[in-house]
Nucleic acid binder design. Structure first.
Length: 204
DNA sequence: CAGCAGATTGACT
DNA sequence: GTCAATCTGCTGC
């Protein structure tokens, strides 16, 4: 491949909040049955393990559903939300520590036509975490897969987002988490940041 | 075992 | 703004 996959060390960082902001500008690529789709990560949220009231692993909860969160950094955690939407997370930290970063939005790069065919919105700039997985073809069967050498890859295409262009704020939809719902664990690229125009495909 | 809430979305009043 | 869709896991009877 033309672009390098993010190395294991990137995911082993013990500060999941730092990883969440570092993922902005990185590229997620999926290849299923010949179809390839990719996009620049533009919004993320950090879920800081057992002590985080908003995490599925709060209080050390460990079930069949969130088992992947306890795997080694660099593993995919895909779960069904509200019984309908597949949400994609990047597991971080070492095995046994359930830290993860939710990918909330991407900016389409490659395979826009495929994304539309998968029933993505007219403009696949993905409105939220549930629609981006549909556009990329990510489903729960990808839960637990390896992000370094699996159907879902995370790459560095050299996009560097200036710190001033990274907006921080509280996470979405986690009001049940009490005080933890106010933590500044959500990161997104400022709307004014110049991203490649959709459809300008950058690779073969 | 029944009921309900949840890291959401899109259609409808 | 309100509400249905629909699966997992927790709580309470």
């Amino acid at each position: 491949m033309k672009h390098p996959a993010l190395p294991r060390t990137f995911y082993l960082n013990e500060d999941v909040v730092q990883v969440a902001s570092a993922l902005l500008g990185k590229v997620i690529v999926t290849r299923f049955a010949g179809a390839c789709t990719s996009g620049i990560i533009t919004e993320t949220e950090a879920y800081a393990g057992e002590g985080d009231g908003a995490s599925h692993a709060r209080g050390g909860r460990r079930t069949l559903r969130n088992e992947a969160m306890y795997k080694i950094g660099g593993t995919a955690y895909v779960f069904l939300c509200y019984g309908i939407h597949h949400l994609f997370n990047v597991v971080t930290h070492q095995e046994g520590i359930p830290h993860a970063v939710l990918i909330r939005a991407i900016h389409p790069l490659e395979g826009v036509a495929t994304m539309r065919a998968r029933r993505a919105p007219a403009v696949p700039t993905t409105g939220g975490p549930g629609t981006l997985t549909t556009a990329l073809g990510i489903r729960v069967i990808h839960n637990g897969s390896d992000l370094l050498d699996g159907p879902i890859r995370m790459e560095d295409h050299g996009y560097h987002i200036y710190k001033d262009a990274i907006l921080t704020g509280p996470r979405i939809g986690v009001g049940y988490a009490g005080a933890d719902a106010l933590l500044p664990y959500r990161f997104r690229i400022a709307p004014s940041w110049p991203l490649p125009s959709i459809g300008s495909g950058d690779r073969t």
